[in-house]
């Protein structure tokens, strides 16, 4: 989890990723930050995120993103 938090903080250090639960739904991160986060996750974890997983609830919190990454990793194995 800490690895993901560090990655997210490298994109935008001013967000409380540990506690924030509405990153997308509440507009906490802007479009550009989202694109950078998506790119960082895809490149750092070497995963491809399919269309059906591109929904707000999968990116609303660090916890949700971690679960998404784990799901994608399990799929790839």
């Amino acid at each position: 989890m800490q690895q993901l938090i560090n990655l997210l903080k490298s994109v935008n250090p001013n967000i409380d990723y540990e506690n924030e639960k509405g990153l997308i739904s509440d507009g906490v991160i802007d479009s550009l930050s989202f694109v950078m986060i998506f790119t960082a996750i895809a490149e750092n974890y070497g995963i491809e995120i399919p269309l059906e997983e591109m929904k707000p609830e999968n990116f609303d919190s660090a916890d949700a993103m971690l679960k998404l990454i784990e799901r994608m990793n399990n799929k790839g194995q």
């Binding site: 989202f34 694109v35 998506f38 790119t39 491809e48 995120i49 591109m54």
Partner: peptide
Amino acid sequence: VGRFDAYLALRHINAS
């Protein structure tokens, strides 16, 4: 300047 898949994801999650 960016990745196509990231832009697609952005547009998809903002659909509503």
